[in-house]
Nucleic acid binder design. Structure first.
Lengths: 209, 209
DNA sequence: AGATCATCTTGACGTCGTTCAGATCGGTGT
DNA sequence: ACACCGATCTGAACGACGTCAAGATGATCT
């Protein structure tokens, strides 16, 4: 009764604390934002002492890494779903891009943690690297399919990077209040997203002159 | 002799502490990175007590705002210089974009503070809004010039937002280690930047089909 | 010179991340 | 059944942080 959590099974000692901590962290992120996400607050939310997390994570950064990992998994599922929903081959990249930005808008605090973890290490997170079914590979393989066989490998890679940068930039800046009048002029949030992504050349995987 | 700073004139009491604090903060950012930027460290670096900054800034956030403001001024100058250096009308936007991303690479800690301040308020910082000679206006007016008279206002605005998102995304992600092989394949850092920005449609201010 | 007021210092409070010695408990071997 | 062991958790502590209230300091004005 002490913990408010989702902890169900407790295979050893007091419970599956590792998962409970990650869940508690996500709950705090959703409810109170990134600035409230202290290790002590997470322990408090999970109903354990401030020192307990150190038996499951080296430090706060490792806990955040675990939270970010969950986030990347969620984002990957979201993008995979968008890919499946795409009406046409040409719409594939746009649908994926829109789902990416929408995810960042639906989980802004989580998205921020995800990218802060990456930036601290100057690299995309583990779950996104070149292993299969990573989000990065999803985008690249989609580009490969859309581009056809006569596009060079380097251009596919380039298009993937460019699309990722564009989506990330829009994810971080799309909420800025300065853009509100423009959004209204275009007919709402999603129309705005599609317009910006359209501008950003998500369609042309081959390098322009 | 106590302060290591750039403080020259000291118009009242003990010195131009406001400027000295901003300078101290920038020095810490350059030398030790954003994680070392505590209010107490800034006061230490400026040679004053931990409470002294509160006579010039409401809280830590306001000090960071002041630091960010300096950063936006520097970035604006950098972009204006790049615009002046552009060889042709068509190269204008690319040069500005490259200078934007290069600034973020030369001052990564400062750039991070600049954007963290913006994100906390969900808007571009004061110094960038619709007043003349803001960086935002610089980009928009450049787009207007490149686009010619027959392009609609909403498309110019859209192109500005899109370019900004692209540049910001590249600024934050361009340093990721995963992209190193791609950079080598393209012939170095700057070639990589130009290739990505080229992909992102910095040239076409009119909406694609 | 004396009063005034912005400026700066001192000292304190609560919170944070982290560590460490010890309490606790599940599982293992006998 | 029982003693043990190692994994797990607690309690207390440390230094650093942001912030605040009260007092000292010193420039400026009359």
């Amino acid at each position: 009764m002490r913990e408010a959590a989702t902890a169900e099974i407790r295979p050893y000692h007091h419970g599956d604390l590792r998962r409970a901590l990650v869940d508690a962290a996500r709950r705090i992120l959703e409810n109170e934002g990134p600035s409230a996400l202290s290790l002590r607050a997470v322990a408090r939310e999970a109903g354990v002492s401030p020192a307990a997390p150190y038996h499951h994570f080296k430090d706060k950064g490792e806990l955040l890494d675990a939270v970010a990992h969950v986030g990347w998994d969620m984002l990957g599922e979201s993008m995979t779903g968008a890919k499946a929903r795409a009406a046409s081959l040409g719409a594939l990249m746009t649908e994926i891009g829109v789902s990416y930005v929408q995810f960042s808008q639906q989980h802004p605090a989580l998205y921020r943690v995800m990218y802060d973890c990456s930036r601290d290490k100057d690299m995309l997170p583990e779950g996104m690297q070149d292993n299969e079914d990573s989000a990065y590979c999803l985008v690249r393989e989609t580009f490969r399919k859309v581009a056809g066989p006569d596009v060079q490998e380097v251009d596919i890679e380039l298009a993937t990077v460019a699309a990722w940068c564009a989506a990330h930039g829009l994810a971080e800046m799309g909420g800025f209040k300065q853009f509100d009048p423009l959004k209204e002029g275009l007919g709402g949030e999603e129309a705005f997203l599609r317009a910006v992504l359209g501008h950003l050349g998500m369609f042309q995987p081959s390098r322009p002159a």
